[in-house]
């Protein structure tokens, strides 16, 4: 998705190498995905579902 859109940054983070992130992002299970610090989920997501998560993350609250 980051390949397709200039607005998307996609990071994979090997969390055992960066222990402070475990606490900062409340990681209890992996893979954990966090989008714009507003939407998060644990486990995999189908492509269409992932797009929905992105859209939810960029939609202002209350709209």
């Amino acid at each position: 998705m980051a390949i397709q859109s200039p607005y998307v940054t996609a990071d994979v983070i090997e969390v055992t190498e960066f222990p402070p992130l475990v606490e900062r992002y409340a990681i209890r299970g992996v893979p954990k995905t966090v989008i714009n610090n507003s939407v998060d989920f644990v486990g995999s997501a189908a492509e269409a579902q992932f797009i929905e998560h992105i859209q939810r993350a960029i939609t202002p609250a209350g709209s």
């Binding site: 940054t9 992130l21 995905t33 960029i58």
Partner: peptide, 28 residues
Amino acid sequence: ETAGLAEESIVALSGISTDVHIQVFVTP
């Protein structure tokens, strides 16, 4: 060219005009 995405995803992504930061946390 297409990163192997479905046509619907490409359409949805082309409609995005704000920054999206996806972070996936994994363990070895």
